[in-house]
């Protein structure tokens, strides 16, 4: 799985961090999401899919291999 985060779209809801803390974080200065791991391990895939599904700004896209 390849994860792409579009920071320009992010509205800092924090939904991705709640869903997959090991893959997403937020910048301290404005809460914009940060991608920690663009090819997360299989064990995190469900959480990452959930993060992409609940992102209100459609800022996370996934390419499943």
């Amino acid at each position: 799985m390849r994860v792409t985060l579009h920071q320009d779209k992010c509205v800092a809801s924090g939904q991705c961090v709640l869903a997959a803390q090991e893959v997403f974080d937020q910048r301290d200065e404005d809460g914009v999401a940060v991608l920690l791991d663009d090819s997360p391990p299989a064990g995190a895939h469900d959480d990452v899919r959930h993060a992409a599904a609940v992102c209100p700004a459609l800022a996370i896209t996934l390419a499943e291999s």
């Binding site: 509205v11 800092a12 961090v17 301290d28 809460g31």
Partner: peptide, 17 residues
Amino acid sequence: HARLRRLVTAPFTVRRI
């Protein structure tokens, strides 16, 4: 909207909360 919202997002991050 984005410009003004982003001014006030910092205190509401998961970590700060």
